[in-house]
């Protein structure tokens, strides 16, 4: 069996939503270079809806694929729904990850939650 599923390789080779949102409403960064994975997520939010999501990732194939998939899963969705995104959903959408790569999906979940926290701290009024 190959190391990664075809889905993972597709999102690794052709990552969706790569880049930066200069006027992002929320930015989240997780991981550290020492461990070999850093993910940065940028969100554009309008009326409680994530209208755009972009990412930058320093990391292995599954880290890049997880970031790509996670942004796809939340784009166009209400913030409330994005908050419920789990790493498991990312893994499932990627048709699985090897056991020692699950942490990549956890990072993707955390990066999004981090970006949403940033959004709430900038827009405390939207919390209600």
């Amino acid at each position: 069996m190959a190391l990664y599923s075809e889905k993972v390789m597709d999102h690794f080779r052709n990552p969706r939503n790569v880049g930066v949102i200069e006027d992002a409403d929320g930015v989240g960064e997780v991981g550290n270079a020492k461990c070999g994975d850093i993910m940065k997520m940028y969100l554009k939010i309008q009326d409680g809806i994530i209208t755009d999501a972009k990412f930058e990732t320093f990391g292995c194939g599954s880290a890049i694929a997880s970031s790509s998939m996670a942004t796809e899963l939340i784009k166009g969705k209400p913030v409330s729904q994005a908050l419920e995104l789990t790493n498991k959903a990312v893994v499932e959408a990627l048709d699985g990850l090897p056991a020692h790569k699950i942490h990549c999906s956890v990072l993707a979940e955390e990066a999004i939650k981090n970006a949403l926290d940033d959004y709430y701290s900038r827009h405390p009024e939207s919390k209600n």
Binding site: F12, C35, G36, F58, G59, C60, G61, A63
Partner: peptide, 27 residues
């Protein structure tokens, strides 16, 4: 600024088999 495993996978796509000392490849 880059990580070794993703470098290896993309080189593999170009037909080059190489290796890396990144954590992701060392297990």
């Amino acid at each position: 600024g880059i990580e070794g495993e993703s470098l290896l996978l993309l080189l593999d796509d170009k037909g080059i088999s190489a290796s890396s000392g990144s954590a992701c490849t060392s297990g």
